[in-house]
């Protein structure tokens, strides 16, 4: 069995007004990757390449041991895909869709599908055109989950959902996580959703992967340091400072490689460390993106 579920090596794809640039990405089997980027950052293009729906200009993509897009049919037999812009057939019922998918996937789990139907409060005989957006997403998720895929690819599934529907969708995903064999790629611009379920985080911006690491490491190494500088004292030079805000006397440093030793280093230089605040994933993402964009602008 291949331990790497998804592997991108030097993948590039150029459009008239957007380019995916030299993407390297590894998703170990059994892990849950949160794929975060602003709108238009390249998340959907990356996912479409992963699914074999868009052919990369250069580089190689391997999904569940299959080179893409050449062996996309074989790979997709083990993939459950739900995308924000994916629609089901409006004139057909939920039950018809379930039967349709069941006829394709030999691992279709009917009792689980019926359990999900109840949990998502969906009516099997209801036509898809009569469903709300939230119900349509839940129906698509049901169809993806009940086929028992080895890889679940979710492209902005919670976008446009009301809080209750979002809670239900995320709740079901959390339940799915109990299956340690399953690999999940979850893309979103909503960092809170991603933070809840992911154990690996990858940031993408303007077609480039800008950072990728374990979620806990991300949350551990990013800090906001609130300092008090004595008069005529220069700001100490610390590693991994990506932004300096606040005032000259009361600077606030955003640090991407925080270590407790940095606090004692500041104190040794006569600088008071007022607080070392943890950052949310959203704050980390925004700081990361801004830093990269400023670097690019220079």
């Amino acid at each position: 069995m291949n331990d790497i579920a998804v592997q991108f090596e030097g993948v590039s794809k150029k459009y008239a007004h957007f380019a995916l640039d030299n993407i390297d990405l590894e998703l170990p089997a059994g892990s849950i990757m949160g794929f975060i980027g602003a709108n238009g950052a390249g998340k959907s293009t990356t996912i479409r390449i992963l699914m074999g729906l868009v052919r990369q200009d250069s580089g190689s993509v391997n999904v569940l041991g299959h080179p893409m897009p050449a062996q996309q049919a074989a790979a997709k037999l083990d993939i459950g895909f739900v995308s924000e812009d994916m629609r089901l057939y409006g004139t057909a019922t939920v039950a018809w869709h379930m039967e349709f998918i069941r006829s394709i996937y030999p691992r279709w789990d009917q009792p689980y599908a019926e359990k999900l139907l109840q949990r998502f409060d969906l009516k099997a005989q209801q036509k898809v055109k009569g469903l709300s957006h939230g119900q349509r997403v839940k129906a698509a998720l049901l169809l993806a989950l009940a086929r028992r895929p080895r890889l679940l690819v979710l492209d902005e599934p919670t976008t446009g959902l009301d809080p209750v529907a979002r809670h239900e969708v995320l709740g079901e995903l959390m339940a799915v996580l109990a299956d340690e064999e399953r690999t999940i790629l979850f893309s979103s611009h909503n960092t809170k959703d991603v933070e809840q379920i992911s154990d690996v985080i990858t940031f993408i911006d303007r077609g480039k992967i800008i950072d990728s690491d374990d979620k806990e490491i991300f949350l551990d190494r990013w800090r906001r340091m609130r300092l008090v500088l004595p008069q005529d004292t220069a700001l100490p030079s610390l590693p991994g400072v990506i932004d300096v805000g606040g005032s000259t006397r009361l600077p606030v440093l955003t640090v991407s490689r925080f270590e407790p030793a940095m606090v004692s280093l500041c104190q040794d230089m006569g600088v008071t460390v007022n607080a070392v605040d943890p950052m949310t994933l959203e704050e980390i993402f925004v700081a990361n993106v801004q830093c990269r964009r400023e670097t690019q602008a220079v």
Binding site: M51, A74, R87, L88
Partner: peptide, 17 residues
């Protein structure tokens, strides 16, 4: 137009098929 192509193409099928 109605975005069902993403649903169909997510199935185990190549574009030739």
């Amino acid at each position: 137009k109605e975005q069902t192509l993403a649903f169909v193409m997510s199935l185990p099928i190549s574009y030739r098929e």
